[in-house]
Amino acid sequence: MAIIINLDRILEERDMKSNELAEMVGITTANLSILKTGKAKAVRFSTLEAICQALDCQPGDILEYLPD
């Protein structure tokens, strides 16, 4: 997959658990899991904004492009 989600790494750096992030962002843990595992087809700007706000990071820290 070309787009890699680095949420796990950032969560570990921030010493935060998935359910805490899900609660802060306002999405279900199931949806967060879909995002983390790279199964998501799209991410809303509002979700991305909330995640960046909760983790105090930039979108580029979460999303990474890797050529195939």
């Binding site: 999405i27 879909i34 199964k39 998501a40 087809k41 799209a42 991410v43 979700t47």
Partner: peptide
């Protein structure tokens, strides 16, 4: 619908 369900 699948695409919509997988939009986070």
């Amino acid at each position: 619908k699948n695409d919509s369900d997988l939009t986070i």
